[in-house]
Every structure is written in structure tokens, then in C-alpha cells.
């Protein structure tokens, strides 16, 4: 359980701006610059296609899963906060990191998946209170943990994605 406040009101942007907790002019400048970089990147053919695809999947899930029982087993409806945190997380992904496949879990939380096989898989889901829940199988290694979402991509997630998506 995390003592995190609900996320702030987000502007209805097609792409999500990175959020920083700083309030100084410098922090605002960095936030705006990062947001602008993300939008520019998402609009590029090469670096943006995975991000655009993930955003489209999120929109589809919003259409299909906003009503309870979308899975036939009494699943909860899509949690709006989870969707917002998922969009925020997308903006954390640096160039060179593959964009995830998008899914939804029975508690209404959005999940991102990096998958090559059942033995090379990372799943990250976004709790309504600002936590991420991760689980991975990478060969003989397994891990699971939950933590607050923070304001950047955790290094263990970045390295796990690289490990899963590398060609070797």
C-alpha cells in the first residue's frame, strides 16, 4: 500500500506530458521541454510508431473496457487513474527502448507487456494510486515487485526490457 495522492488533473493531450514534482521555473522549463520532446518523438516515423500504436491500443481499451464485466468474469471497469499513469509511463521510455503491447487486467488496471516468449516476458501494470506492479520471467530469473511510479523509467525495468527484446 502506498500513501500516494491521486494523480493531478491532466490536460486532455493526445500525448502525455512527463510530470515532475518541481515547482520552480527551471522545473517547469524542463517539464515543458520534455513534453515537447515526447510529442515530437511520437510524431516521427521511426521513433514514434511504437508509441502511437500503444496510444491507439489504450484508446481502444478505453472504448471496450470502461464497463464492468468486459471479460465475462466480472472484471472491474478500466480505472481512469491507471490509464493516466500508463500514459505518463509511456513518456518515460527513451529512444531505443521498444514500446510495449497494451492490455488490461481484471481489476481494471492497464498493463504493458514486453514479450518474446513465455520465458522472456515483462509485465508492468499501473495502480490507481500511483504504484507500478511488475513481474518478469527472463530465462531462469523471475522477479515481482511493486513501487511508486516516480518520474522516470526505473533502471531495472529498462534493463529487463533490453534483455527481453535483444536478439540474442
Amino acid at each position: 500500500m502506498f500513501a500516494y495522492a491521486p494523480p493531478p488533473e491532466f490536460p486532455s493531450l493526445e500525448y502525455h506530458q512527463p510530470v515532475t514534482f518541481g515547482v520552480s521555473r527551471e522545473a517547469q522549463f524542463i517539464k515543458e521541454s520534455l513534453g515537447s520532446m515526447f510529442v515530437n518523438r511520437a510524431n516521427t516515423q521511426v521513433f514514434g510508431s511504437g508509441i502511437r500504436s500503444a496510444l491507439m491500443e489504450l484508446a481502444e481499451i478505453q472504448d471496450e473496457c470502461s464497463i464492468a464485466n468486459w471479460d465475462g468474469y466480472n472484471a472491474l471497469p478500466l480505472q481512469t487513474n491507471s490509464l493516466e499513469y500508463a500514459k505518463r509511463f509511456l513518456a518515460f521510455l527513451p529512444i531505443g527502448i521498444e514500446a510495449p503491447a497494451v492490455s488490461i487486467e481484471p481489476d481494471g488496471e492497464i498493463s504493458f507487456e514486453w514479450y518474446r516468449s513465455a520465458s522472456r516476458i515483462l509485465s508492468v501494470s499501473f495502480g490507481s494510486s500511483g504504484e507500478i506492479h511488475c513481474a518478469a520471467i527472463i530465462g531462469a530469473r523471475r522477479f515481482s515487485l511493486s513501487e511508486p511510479i516516480g518520474d522516470s523509467l526505473p533502471s531495472y525495468i529498462a534493463s529487463s526490457i533490453r534483455e527481453i527484446t535483444s536478439r540474442s
Binding site: 511488475c134 520471467i137 523471475r142
Partner: peptide, 15 residues
Amino acid sequence: GVKSEQKLVALELAK
């Protein structure tokens, strides 16, 4: 009851 642990078991079952 811990969600991340549940996720890992779900990965194992799906495997």
C-alpha cells in the same frame, strides 16, 4: 494478496 506476486504466478500459469 500482493498484486505483483499474483502477476508472477499468472505469468507462470500462462507459460
